[in-house]
Write a protein that binds this DNA or RNA. Structure first.
Lengths: 153, 153
DNA sequence: TATTGTTATACTCTATAACTATA
DNA sequence: TATAGTTATAGAGTATAACAATA
């Protein structure tokens, strides 16, 4: 009956999601990282030794884009490409100690970011929100831990 | 104590917000509209007669970008520029009947979109989510009704 | 011939800055 | 001179396609 009850949850999710993504990008810019770089670093840490093709598939990005992202992390000594002697076409990707150290700082930033975004809610509300969002993420088949911004936004 | 309890709400908001934005973009593509065009059309309808400068400020986009967006809607007869006789520099923007008709279809799409995104939740959960998201949107000062994707994403 | 990684190229979106017309 | 709108230009980010090395 009432058609004027304001925006729906989907609209609010888009607004808040965009806002949260922007705020996170600002925070990790202090570490001289972009969101795609951060997602890639985390993906390499989550599954060490994967090929660039495998990572491209996981993240949903073309291999050519991955090359540039890996280049940036490689040049800064955060990850390294190890050639596989059995198949010299493959580059197994690994996080270096410096990369691990940076991942620790990323985790700290993520925690502060989360507190910032949900700061207006009390603990019970935060828990409820977390549960509801998790339910939706599962329902829509979103890959756990994979930042968006890869699949044809 | 437990550091391995999965992603936080901020991360989930980013994932779901990006997903929802993408799905909405797909839906309104059927109406041959982009998200920025849709947001602009809604903004013009919400405050008829505004100047392009005023709309640019409201949406947080440079005036030059607004020109192209208005051009697209104007050429399709969805909005019209009316010159102000008192100050011929100004273009007062109005939605045409065709634009109003399209806004009706956009509202239908938005409703279907919302049902899609929150479909995994029962009515009580949907209501709870809506309340929590609204609280966060207010806390972060997000402009009601204004799609993101305008302010320096 | 097929596959991994790479390079070259082009396209989309957006912002910045220069320009015009009105005031 | 200041402002609304417009046009011109350039930059960032990404995708597509061609290429080289290895299998």
């Amino acid at each position: 009956m009432d058609d004027r009850n304001g925006p729906g949850s989907a609209f609010l999710l888009t607004q808040l999601g965009t806002y949260a993504a922007g705020r996170f990008a600002e925070r990790i810019a202090d570490l001289e990282l972009t969101p795609p770089q951060t997602g890639l670093l985390r993906a390499i840490a989550a599954g060490p030794g994967q090929s660039q093709q495998a990572l491209a598939t996981l993240l949903g990005t073309p291999p050519s884009r991955l090359v540039a992202l890996v280049d940036g992390l490689d040049e800064r000594g955060l990850v390294e490409r190890r050639r596989n002697p059995d198949d010299r076409r493959l580059h197994a990707l690994h996080v270096t100690p410096a990369g691990q150290e940076l991942l620790g700082r990323i985790a700290q930033v993520g925690k502060a970011h989360d507190d910032d975004i949900t700061g207006a809610l009390d603990p019970a509300e935060r828990s409820a929100l977390r549960g509801l969002l998790g339910k939706l993420a599962v329902a829509h088949g979103l890959t756990p831990g994979v930042h968006p911004g890869y699949r044809h936004l």
